[in-house]
Amino acid sequence: MKLEALGYNNEIKNSLDIGLEGLEIGRVITEHKERYLVQSEKGEFEAEITGNLRYTAAGRADFPAVGDWVALMVFDTHSAIIHKVLPRFSVLSRKAVGVTADIQIIATNIDFAFIVLSVDEDFSLNRMERYLTLCHSSCIQPIIILNKMDLVAEDRLSELMGQLKNRFEEIPVLGISASTTQGLKRVREIIEVGKTYCLLGSSGVGKSTLVNALSQKRLMETKKVSDYSKKGRHTTTHRELVVLENGGILIDNPGMREVGLPDVSNGLDKTFEDILDLAAHCKFKDCTHTVETGCAVTQAVESGDIDKSAYENYLKLKREQVHFDSTIAEKRKKDKDFGKMIKHFKYIKKSNK
């Protein structure tokens, strides 16, 4: 397979450092507990990272992830060692579940994100704003896909589509049924050759069914919708990069029960751009948009110019961002104090010799 089919372009080529002579360039297509499947022009290789790469990594974010371009040394027809992760032009990440101040990389080098939600209980405009904030913070262009449109009446579908288009005026919204293929022609038409698309969404919204439909192959296992809950059961357990027949590149992801936001201040500003524009007209520069006199934002909420639910979600996400920032600062202080303690211990030990 040619590297161009995996999304290789001049921008990536120009990022190559000197000293990579003799190494093969490939793209990570799957990851399993720090073991990687890498596709290059010579084939697919099971790869591990070098000890030096592991030792010099400042954190888990410095390890390879699905979508990464890497330089590797090929040993035989099946195995290789990854020596370097090439610079990323986009990184989609979230706050790791249950781990304080840790970041989990979802995928890298993504151009567009298909944010999938379904017409059933999964439908949530507030959760959509979380996904949009993740995308905007990484300069990834979002596209909203409303799936399972075959499960509701036409008037209900029109209502849901209207809610999405009214709340997210600048974001493309597509209605589909991945199981019946209704609406998939439009999705295929917007997929560009050599561009990488990432699927985001909660468990059971039909992402794996969508991957199978777009690839026209049974690549991902899917399970029947529950007769009781009307929800599909999510079966994707790992991230995987797939090259589609029309030349697009697709990355499927396990469903996310929690969408914790990392450092996404710029993403918040983009997602809630209308609130940010109004904030410039507040009486006080440090306005929190809650109780201050002369707040242009709260006035717009009261008049109905700003959706109240969107406003409340904005405040919630801002509080999460402040908490995350303070947690990061606390972690850095602890790491710095620990480093000083180790340095002092070594000094005392050396002085006693």
Rank of each mutant, 00 (worst) to 15 (best):
T56D: 12
V116Q: 03
L317S: 07
V187K: 08
D263H: 15
S93K: 08
T196I: 02
A213K: 01
R127I: 08
K185H: 05
E44G: 09
T237N: 10
F75I: 03
I251D: 00
F168R: 00
A153L: 11
P142I: 12
L92F: 13
T180L: 07
L317T: 05
R35D: 09
V259C: 03
K333S: 07
L6S: 00
R233H: 11
Y228G: 04
V225F: 01
Y8T: 02
A153Q: 15
D227C: 00
A5Q: 09
H32E: 13
A58Q: 15
S177M: 07
L92Q: 06
G339Q: 11
A101D: 08
G51K: 10
M220W: 00
A96G: 03
F123N: 01
K350G: 01
V152A: 13
Q141L: 08
I145N: 02
A280S: 14
E192D: 08
G98H: 14
K350T: 03
S309M: 12
L157G: 13
F89T: 10
F114G: 01
N10S: 12
E189R: 14
C287P: 03
K331E: 05
I171C: 02
I25R: 01
G43N: 04
R239P: 05
V173S: 00
L3A: 01
D286W: 13
L317Y: 06
L86F: 12
K270N: 07
K318N: 14
R130N: 09
F114A: 01
M149L: 14
R233M: 12
V264P: 08
L117N: 11
F75K: 09
L278Y: 10
M73Y: 12
M1Y: 07
F89Y: 15
N147F: 11
G260E: 07
D325I: 10
I306F: 04
N147L: 10
I103N: 04
Q39P: 04
T77K: 15
G19R: 01
L184E: 13
F284D: 14
S79Q: 11
R188N: 11
I144N: 05
F114I: 01
D150S: 06
K148L: 03
Y197R: 02
S202L: 06
A300W: 08
T237A: 13
Y228F: 10
E169I: 06
E192K: 15
L241I: 05
L53K: 15
L72G: 02
G267C: 08
P64K: 14
Y197A: 00
E292P: 08
L37N: 15
H323L: 10
I328V: 12
Y131N: 07
H78R: 11
I251M: 00
K318T: 11
K223N: 10
S265I: 14
T290E: 04
D150C: 06
F63S: 04
S137R: 12
P142Y: 12
H323M: 10
I145Y: 04
A300L: 08
D263C: 13
D62A: 14
E302L: 08
W69I: 02
M161L: 15
G260A: 09
F63T: 01
G183W: 05
V99Y: 11
I275E: 05
E192Q: 14
R35Q: 12
K333H: 08
V243G: 00
E48P: 01
A71S: 03
N266A: 15
K224T: 12
R27I: 11
